Computed example of a mutant assay.
Amino acid sequence: MAAAGNNVVVDHVLSFAWRLSDCLDLLDPEHVVFVGVRCPMEETVAREAARGDRPVGQAASQFHQVHAHGDYDVEVDTGVMGPRECAERVKEHLTHRTFPTAFSRLRSSRTGRTGG
């Protein structure tokens, strides 16, 4: 969809390094706005339990890995921000984008490394 020129929103848990590596290989880094969606561990675990459709402990086991790469274009914290505030933060970023993008920086930093 993105390669065909469509704007897409991808919600992807980067639970393994190779998941980010795949995204870096597939997506044009200058057209990606990489949004870090954070939430405190306690809230993440509570939301997982309330959903009831995930293995217990999955959120906690992935908590540190999903942000291990450490670089985003913009970040939101759903533990303290509501959906509208998160959307406004991303919208504001879009009007003041900077380059190189997080995806460009991450591509450059992984030169010579492989995803695991």
Rank of each mutant, 00 (worst) to 15 (best):
G112F: 07
M81N: 13
E43D: 05
T78E: 03
A68C: 10
R47K: 01
G52T: 05
E85K: 12
H93E: 05
E42R: 09
V56T: 11
R51D: 03
P40L: 03
H64T: 08
T101E: 06
A2K: 01
P55F: 06
R84E: 15
Y72H: 09
Q58H: 06
E88F: 07
T98I: 10
L94Q: 07
R47Y: 04
H69I: 09
E48L: 01
D53V: 13
A17R: 14
V90I: 15
R105M: 10
E30W: 00
D53W: 03
A17D: 15
R47I: 04
V10N: 07
T111R: 13
V74A: 02
L94S: 03
V37N: 04
N6Q: 12
K91I: 09
H31V: 00
T114S: 13
H12V: 14
A60Q: 11
T98L: 09
R107I: 10
L106M: 13
Q65E: 14
S15L: 08
S61E: 04
M41K: 11
M1E: 11
L27S: 02
T78D: 04
H93T: 01
R107C: 10
T44K: 09
C86P: 01
D77L: 08
F16H: 13
N7L: 10
L27G: 00
G115K: 01
A102T: 07
V76Q: 03
A3P: 09
R107K: 15
A49L: 09
D28H: 04
F99D: 08
H12G: 08
H69V: 10
A3C: 07
R113K: 15
T111E: 12
F103A: 01
V56A: 11
Q58T: 15
E30D: 10
A46R: 15
N6V: 08
E75P: 02
Q62A: 06
L14H: 07
F16W: 12
L20M: 14
E92M: 10
R110A: 11
A68N: 12
E30K: 04
K91W: 14
D28E: 11
R105D: 10
H67W: 00
T44G: 07
S15I: 08
A50Q: 15
R105K: 14
A3M: 09
F103V: 02
G70A: 15
F99H: 13
D53E: 08
Q58L: 14
T95I: 09
V8G: 00
H64Q: 10
R110I: 11
Q65G: 00
G36V: 02
A60D: 04
F16A: 14
Q65F: 03
S104N: 04
L106T: 10
T101G: 04
D22A: 12
R107L: 11
A2S: 13
V37R: 01
S109D: 14
L26T: 13
V56M: 07
H64P: 00
A17Q: 15
T101Y: 06
F99C: 07
Y72N: 05
V33D: 08
S15M: 06
G79D: 10
D28K: 08
D11G: 01
A2G: 07
R89Y: 03
L27M: 12
H93M: 00
V76D: 03
